[in-house]
């Protein structure tokens, strides 16, 4: 009974994780500039990957695999924001302009103040 319940739960988690991955990919195609795309890739991507690993953890019935999957989720949640931040910072500082619809940019004013004339 419990085994069946875990399998049903795992299947649902798996499909939802896959859906979030698809949403992240659609966002990366549809959104207008790098920074908004990064929102889709980092948030929906991390949630999608995490849900799939959670599905593996729920359906495996093995302590070692369960712990490894949980550690994998933690690892994914730690590294995704770091890589998004690094990429955003690198591309901003090397002059990748935000899209036209960006209506406020505090970082730009700071960089212009610091630039030697």
């Amino acid at each position: 009974m419990i085994v069946d319940l875990a399998l049903y739960l795992g299947g649902v988690l798996l499909v939802f994780g896959a859906l979030f991955c698809l949403l992240a990919a659609v966002g990366v195609i549809r959104l207008p500039d790098l920074y908004t795309r990064m929102h889709a890739a980092s948030k929906a991507g991390a949630v999608g990957g995490g849900l799939i690993l959670l599905a593996v953890a729920v359906t495996c019935f093995d302590t070692g695999v369960f712990l490894r999957a949980i550690v994998g989720i933690l690892f994914l949640l730690l590294t995704t924001p770091i890589s998004a931040h690094l990429l955003a910072r690198a591309s901003y500082l090397t002059g990748y302009k935000p899209s036209e619809s960006t209506h406020r940019d505090d970082l730009k004013t700071r960089l212009e103040q610091n630039r030697p004339a």
Binding site: H39, S42, P81, A88
Partner: peptide, 13 residues
């Protein structure tokens, strides 16, 4: 890190 993973925000610098 938490700002990056919460609704609508992403830390840049």
């Amino acid at each position: 890190n938490m700002i990056t993973l919460t609704p609508g925000t992403l830390s840049i610098d």
